[in-house]
């Protein structure tokens, strides 16, 4: 009934009646919307509707884990033996993404600073994302940057490295295809180089350190600074002005750190780059 009212209105709008009847149509549509809202109440009783649903989902979950636990036994290997190191030694599966990143970074970054950045980065999301759209419903267009960044980080980096670490890393942390024989004696000749050697400077010199530090800092700060200048300073983009410098820089540094992980992975895989920067006191990136 209400649907047909709306359709009739839409058909009317073609025949060139003036502003006055447009106003009347808007009012009619508003009334229709109100009628619809009353016809389908927004709220329902928790009992029985939600409790019933929870009961059903809970029963299904319990049935699932019970069957799973009957069919598959939890692993129990030989007794703990600190003198016998298995090859490969793997962390629990949910940490294998971080163990995978150890290929590309020293432990202080891959095992401590990066996970801390991830936790802090997740926690600040509500405070740096000031876009009011997309609150409480699925959408992509209204918040494409937030969703793309999140999907890239979660699926593209976290989940995919967990899968790589779990299924295709074998002895010596070498890559083995699923089903491939795990040769514990596998070795690959690798000549790693440091970033500054591309400029003809040894990485363990002061000049090498400065090149490395400048490159790393330049990567983190440079592109966001240029982007801020274009958007906020020159074009006076309203969104960037509303976002403000502090929120912008927190977002930018977290974003560039995530991208930096990807850049380092590419540099390592394509050019055997071990360190971008070789600093004092084991401070290497």
């Amino acid at each position: 009934m209400a649907q047909s009212t709306i359709t009739a209105d839409t058909e009317d709008s073609g025949d060139g009646t003036g502003d006055r009847s447009d106003g009347a149509k808007v009012k009619e549509r508003a009334r229709t919307a109100q009628r619809l809202a009353k016809a389908i109440p927004d709220k329902v009783h928790t009992w029985p509707y939600l409790v019933r649903l929870e009961m059903m989902v809970g029963t299904a979950v319990m049935a699932f884990v019970t069957v799973w636990s009957i069919v598959v036994d939890a692993p129990l290997e030989e007794p703990a033996n600190p003198t016998k190191t298995p090859n490969p030694s793997k962390a629990p599966w949910y940490f294998l993404g971080l163990q995978e990143i150890l290929v590309y970074f020293d432990p202080w970054f891959a095992g401590v600073v990066l996970p801390s950045l991830m936790i802090v980065g997740l926690m600040v999301i509500p405070y740096i994302d000031i876009n009011p759209k997309g609150n409480g419903y699925y959408c992509f267009k209204d918040r494409w940057f937030a969703i793309s960044t999140f999907l890239f980080g979660f699926l593209g980096l976290w989940i995919s490295t967990v899968i790589i670490g779990t299924f295709i890393r074998g002895p010596g942390w070498y890559l083995f295809l699923p089903g491939e024989y795990w040769d514990v004696h596998k070795t690959q000749a690798l000549t790693n180089v440091d970033w500054s050697t591309f400029f003809g400077v040894a990485s363990d010199t002061t000049a090498g350190f400065l090149i490395g530090a400048a490159s790393a800092l330049g990567f983190l700060i440079g592109p966001p600074a240029v982007w801020w200048h274009i958007k906020a300073v020159r074009r006076k983009d309203a969104f960037f002005l509303q976002l403000g410098k502090l929120r912008y820089w927190i977002t930018a540094l977290l974003f560039m750190s995530m991208m930096g992980v990807v850049v380092k992975m590419v540099l390592r895989l394509a050019f055997n780059v071990k360190y971008i920067m070789l600093g004092p006191y084991n401070f290497n990136i």
Binding site: P75, L76, E77, E78, P79, A80, N81, P82, K84, T85, P86, S89, K90, A91, P92, F95, L98, Q99, D106, P107, W108, A110, G111, V112, V113
Partner: peptide
């Protein structure tokens, strides 16, 4: 307290020694 657990925890906690 089997081989799986002691070495997984070794790998995990070894990150602690690299804390800045």
């Amino acid at each position: 307290w089997d081989q799986l657990s002691i070495w997984a925890v070794t790998v995990g906690t070894n990150m602690g020694r690299a804390t800045p």
